[in-house]
Simulated assay, not measured.
Amino acid sequence: MDAHNRPPKLMDRVKATMRVKRYSPRTEKTYCYWIRYFIRFHGVRHPASMGAPEVKAFLEHLAVDRYVAAATQNQALNALVFLYRHILEQPLGEIGEFSRARRPRRLPVVLSHEEVMRVLGKLAGHMHLMGTLMYGSGLRLIETCRLRVRDIEIQGQIITVRAGKGDKDRTTLLPASCIPALQHQIATAEKQLVHRQQHGNVPVTLPHALDRKYPNAGVSLAWQWLFPASRPCFDNDGKIVLHHIHPSAVQRAVRNAMRAASLPKPGSCHTLRHSFATQLLSQGTDIRTVQELLGHKSVETTQIYTHVLGNAFAGVRSPLG
């Protein structure tokens, strides 16, 4: 059998199927990691020759020998369920009881408004704007990095989060105080687009093969990244494109700002989002509204913030005063 007629390799099939089903590049990378790890754990046996018992043994290994977190173990399980259901077309069925990684109950770290302002005061330029949006709009880090010009509605003061967690769209608040900085950022994106058109016409990366449907979308202002990377890169097809800023750069800037602000507790980008939620709840905002703004699938996820508010929750006071 020549190379052209040879069936695609297992991992190539996994990647192709995930792209057809519109999984994010991060999820694709993660699932491929766990599938390869599973195969190596069982002596490089083909997954088609294995099943539920081998998956159970692998998950036990992660919990008992590797001491992984509960979320990590669930991630590995999801990757293997995907493999058997969508690639091998032999669903695992009942795996049975196995050692679950412990899911410790930890309350999120939140900052007061004054503490957040101290942190933001240590950020500058577009990093300051990104930090402000995570706190003022409740955006996740990756959602902030992925903002495009078309997602900002200045007139209605709305930010549209597209393909957020769970591949769902939602809208959230656009703080009035962010408008001048956002207008400046959009103007900068337009200048950079004009410059790129004059020097090679490098397009931005687009979702779900949109560049084939709308060939000029990658060089239109609406589709430009609000926070682009500093230089172009190669995409999966070997084309030169411009991606959004890498999340690690923002994480590093926020971590340094929190250190410089001399906070009494550790924090991260997600701390700014946590603080957004607790500030809204302490002001009496309905928990369902906060759930929608945050993009939580379940209100139970949002309720964790009520446990860190203490006597500040919606103005409630103890009967003893």
Rank of each mutant, 00 (worst) to 15 (best):
D2K: 09
H4I: 13
K9M: 08
R13T: 03
K15F: 06
K15Y: 06
Y23H: 13
P25K: 05
Y31F: 13
Y31W: 03
W34Q: 01
I35K: 01
F38Q: 00
I39F: 03
V44L: 11
S49W: 01
E54H: 01
K56S: 06
K56T: 00
F58M: 00
H61M: 11
L62K: 02
R66M: 13
T72M: 06
A76K: 01
L77P: 02
A79H: 01
L83H: 02
R85Y: 03
R85G: 02
I87E: 02
I87A: 02
L88S: 03
L92G: 00
G93T: 00
I95K: 00
G96I: 00
G96E: 00
S99G: 05
A101V: 05
R102E: 12
R105K: 13
R106K: 13
L107D: 14
V110I: 11
S112Q: 14
G121S: 11
M130A: 12
G131Y: 03
Y135E: 04
Y135L: 08
G136D: 02
G136H: 11
G138S: 14
R140P: 09
R148Q: 15
R148A: 14
V149C: 15
D151T: 05
I152Y: 07
E153R: 10
Q157Y: 07
I158G: 09
T160R: 13
A163R: 11
G164F: 10
G166V: 04
D167F: 09
T172Y: 06
S177E: 14
A181Q: 11
L182V: 10
Q183H: 08
H184P: 01
Q185R: 13
Q185C: 12
Q185V: 09
Q185I: 07
K191T: 10
Q192W: 05
V194H: 10
H195I: 04
Q197K: 15
V202K: 01
V202R: 00
P203L: 02
T205Q: 14
T205C: 09
L206D: 08
P207N: 12
L210R: 14
K213Q: 12
N216V: 09
W223G: 03
P228M: 06
P232D: 02
C233T: 15
N236I: 12
V241M: 05
H243L: 03
H243N: 15
H246F: 14
R252G: 07
R255D: 12
N256M: 12
A257T: 06
M258Y: 05
P266D: 13
G267L: 08
H270V: 04
S275C: 08
S275P: 05
A277N: 11
A277W: 05
A277K: 06
R288G: 08
R288N: 07
T289Y: 10
V290W: 03
V290Q: 03
E292L: 12
H296G: 11
S298E: 13
V299N: 04
T302H: 12
I304K: 07
I304E: 13
Y305W: 09
L309A: 08
S318V: 04
G321H: 04
